[in-house]
Amino acid sequence: MNYPLHLAILVLLWGYIYTSWSLMGRLGLVSFGHGAFMGIGAYTVVMLWNHFGLSPWLGAIAAFVFSAVVAIVIGWPCFRFRIVGHYFALVTLALSEVTRLIFIAARDHTGGSLGATPNGALVDGTSASLWALQFSSKLPWLLIVTALWLFGLWVWRQVDRSMGRLALQAISEEEEAAASIGIHVTRAKLRITIISALMTCAGGILYAQYQLYVNPDTVSGIAISLQMVFGVIAGGMFVMLGPTVGAAFTLLLAEGLRLAFGNRYPALDATIYGVMLVLFIIYMPKGILGAALEGWKAARRRKAAPA
């Protein structure tokens, strides 16, 4: 029972994080730096808990403030000076490497590349500590991540219906033209960046608390940032459930191959996944769900039209 539960938790949690990334990605802000926000969330909370005994609930507030500051410090000049496309991707890539290297370099406090474990709060047979955000059973986690995932979809819908989304869509198509009709480009971009960064940060916090382990390479840096980008591409970044489909697809692919071949072929799943990514981007840029929905719509149109 624990194993399917574990898979469901991971799919929902990653689905939520991918959804957070897509809020920016689908509007032309392709960030390679979201590992930074995930890492800030994970490390801030674990470090404050380990060194100062501060509850993750309070640590989360610090992590949010911290993420927002980083998002503004990086985002504002990027948007103000019209750093877009390749350049935006590579500046954010530098950001995610900076956070990863800081976690490694501050090894006296963070444990360096070996990672760190939050001090256990579950002593004397207690099975749950809400204060420490640690639970010995997986059921509370499923409830928490489901709620978070639904919240992510709700944010997506709110953004979709807002004026801001229209403004950002205009910006992503023709930035100068959008500015000329009175859209405040910098403000519009910064707003969505902060929303996306804070949501990713929350994902990082829960990921660390669920795994009870943080490691510079698994919560920040280029590898995790690319994982987010590609998960979203696989699922489809222009439809609400696309990122979640991407998370489910990648996880089930990995687990399916592991069940089929055992551990005889390490990285077989990643190899197949890499090939599929290349094919997706070339032939199916809307992702699995995007392409499926399009096919379904086309089929319905054919049926509706008289032969």
Binding site: V30, H86, A270, T271, Y273, I281
Partner: peptide
């Protein structure tokens, strides 16, 4: 070549897919 006329960001991403593939294939 197949994505040469697609959006520029797709060209960046497709080589990212190759990165993933080469790294995993080397592990394998």
């Amino acid at each position: 070549r197949p994505v040469l006329n697609a959006e520029p960001i797709n060209q960046l991403l497709v080589t990212g897919g190759v990165l993933f593939f080469l790294q995993a294939a080397a592990t394998l």
